[in-house]
Design a protein around this nucleic acid. Sequence first.
DNA 1: TGCTGTATGATGGTATACCAACTGATGGCA
DNA 2: TGCCATCAGTTGGTATACCATCATACAGCA
Lengths: 229, 229
Amino acid sequence: MPDLLADHGGLRIDRSTKTLRERTVERLRDAILNFQFKAGDRLIERSLCEKLGVSRTVVREALRHLEAEGFVETLPQQGPAVAKPDIGQAAQVYEIRALLEAEAARAAARMATPADVARLAAANTAIQAAFADGTGRDVLRATTGFYELLFTIAGKSVAWQLVQGLNARINYLRAMTISRPNRSVDANAEMLRIVEAIARGDGRAAAKASFDHVEKVKNLAMAMLDTAQ
Amino acid sequence: MPDLLADHGGLRIDRSTKTLRERTVERLRDAILNFQFKAGDRLIERSLCEKLGVSRTVVREALRHLEAEGFVETLPQQGPAVAKPDIGQAAQVYEIRALLEAEAARAAARMATPADVARLAAANTAIQAAFADGTGRDVLRATTGFYELLFTIAGKSVAWQLVQGLNARINYLRAMTISRPNRSVDANAEMLRIVEAIARGDGRAAAKASFDHVEKVKNLAMAMLDTAQ
DNA sequence: TGCTGTATGATGGTATACCAACTGATGGCA
DNA sequence: TGCCATCAGTTGGTATACCATCATACAGCA
């Protein structure tokens, strides 16, 4: 079996095309992240087959994947639905995010080049633009772009994978914190603290700013869940 | 659809039985963790069907789940195999573990009752017994038991899920660090530091002892990977 | 009008079939 | 003896069938 990952003098044929299953996983994940399905919505197999134009095998395998990632939960005798974490799990998810993002910010402060810093600043500007002109969906997407860049600069691809999965579980909470009055102003100040600390290479300050930011949104989210119950 | 999670005066019928798929996921995960399959081994569907006595649908869905958890990786045109991370990923996995376990140790120091501390001490004794009388597999299992207890005391079920997945990816590295000469003696001292710090309620010391322990095994693992390449 | 029984449709679980691509073995020819 | 072509077996991808369980709607009866 040829080693597709090794470099063999540059002549290797690229045969990597995505299976229907892989594309289905991506489509469903995107649909969940973009609120085409909301937390708690049932994901009925035959209905998804019709929408996506694939067989139940493909849908079922995609659901298994998303289930393991935390996007979907399956209750016995009830079938799959978009994941909706309880308040205890949500709190823990925010705590872990805070740890991982703070560590990434610390490492990014150490490793960022001036070009990196400029890119982070631009990513933050994109978040503000999304708050001003876009939808909640746009803000989530821009925020994801910022953090993806942060983790990439920090060289922490594994942590980024975990954070993506964690964020999946609290997707709708994130959407709700974004839509709070004045969240735009506070978020701007908080992200700016992170970018500025990284710009001056202050890992400790970057970690603190990042940690404080996640604590802030965690508290907003917990307050909302308390109200909703 | 009845709400299976709500309490309705205690009369509710418990119908939660596991599907073939759920049991297959567990069996395969256990087999990987117990080195019945080794890192890099191909997981051929029809062969697994014969071994497990189930259809390809059940096996494929289980593989999808384990793939998303990080136990299995699928290369195009090559099919599924037990995951084998490279040195960069392995380093990152250890770093994340260090963060999450340190945080769990800190919280456990705050929350542990005397009975909890006794259980942790017993779990540590079980690790030492496994080093003395058991196999590497026994040591891994006992160590998992210790950490499961630690995270439970700390109230961190989500972090524990993540750590389990992370450990899956470095399962064989863990087995290799365990089998080093004198690892038993060092491990005992390191775990004892953790238990003692928790016993006296010193969160900071517990976090440090836990962090140092993971740093130690990370360095052992990195040294081995360097040698192997 | 309300309750109960029955029937039908919906849904997830599981098995099997078919196909395409790939790998390895074998035979023939130069 | 080595190389090439062909064939057979292996394997993953995908589709579909069947079944059991559950939910909902409807009809009949008191």
